[in-house]
């Protein structure tokens, strides 16, 4: 089978400071991951803050160029995309969803405008087609254009706005969605509906999803595979249920032990991880 996304031993080094006071940060180090084409799946990338998750997402989205290794999307090296045409083609197939929907949308612009722009620029829609495409994408996430038309971001709840962000990503019928902590800013009562939505995107629209999170419970709930990162390195990976039910690496165990479960209610005996 051919690979949809092939991350081949990539690394990313950030250098800051001046010649004499140089600081080198290795954000991602020797990381490999392969998603097969024709078999949509949800891959969760788990790790604490500063473990390089977001850097990895930016590299997959071609917002940052890896300093080592190659990322190939359907056989093409992402870093070699130069022309506008090739870039638009890449954007059509790989779409991002960001953490905080209130920051992702400009508060002074109407939300529907983002949907229309994506429809015009990425799906080459014109005239009435634009509305039809936007409406169809919104229906896929349980909203409709009638509800959203003319609304500003502050008029929607966090959950609705995140759904609108997902609808925008769906307009160009992408093959891969990179979601960077998509539910951490969404209210608890709305969180599960977003998580379930990802699952239906995989099952019904056959979109592969790279789901970046630090929440092990939702990762266990929706993902097929997990990759646990610590300080830029992959420390453990495999089938989600197996890895999270029985983690082997000490860091994975620490992560799992740190999850605060509602089951412990009534015996508040929380202890520090030494």
């Amino acid at each position: 089978m051919s690979a949809l996304l092939d991350i081949d031993r990539v690394g990313m080094t950030y250098v800051s400071g001046t010649l004499l006071a140089r600081r080198v940060v290795r954000a991602v180090d020797d990381l490999s991951l392969r998603l097969e084409a024709g078999r949509p799946e949800i891959v969760a990338i788990i790790g604490e803050s500063g473990s390089g998750k977001t850097t990895l997402a930016r590299m997959i989205l071609n917002l940052a160029t890896p300093t080592d290794g190659v990322i190939r999307f359907r056989g093409t090296d992402v870093a070699k995309i130069r022309s506008n045409h090739a870039r638009a083609d890449f954007m059509r197939q790989v779409q991002p969803i960001f953490q905080n929907p209130f920051e992702a949308f400009n508060p002074l612009k109407r939300v529907d405008r983002y949907l229309f722009m994506s429809a015009r620029r990425l799906a080459d829609a014109r005239g009435a087609e634009v509305d039809a495409l936007a409406d169809r994408a919104l229906h896929q996430v349980g909203l409709s254009l009638a509800e959203l038309r003319g609304r500003f971001p502050h008029e929607l709840s966090g959950g609705q706005l995140q759904r609108a962000a997902i609808a925008r990503a769906l307009i160009s019928a992408p093959k891969l969605i990179v979601a960077d902590e998509p539910v951490s800013m969404v209210d608890a009562s709305l969180r599960m509906s977003i998580v379930n939505l990802f699952r239906s995107l995989r099952d019904e629209l056959h979109v592969s999803i790279v789901y970046i999170t630090h929440d092990l419970a939702t990762a266990y709930y929706i993902s097929d595979r997990v990759l646990i990162m610590q300080r830029g390195r992959a420390v453990e990976s495999g089938a989600a249920r197996e890895v999270l039910a029985n983690p082997q690496h000490p860091y994975s165990r620490l992560l799992k032990a740190s999850v605060l479960s509602p089951e412990d209610a009534g015996k508040p005996t929380i202890a520090a991880n030494t």
Partner: peptide
Amino acid sequence: PYTAQLVTSLPRIGDIEPKQGLDGAP
């Protein structure tokens, strides 16, 4: 019912039962 929804909708490791979020907005 709201508290019940908040508590039961949480996914847990080791539990793959489908969970539903609340419809509507606050």
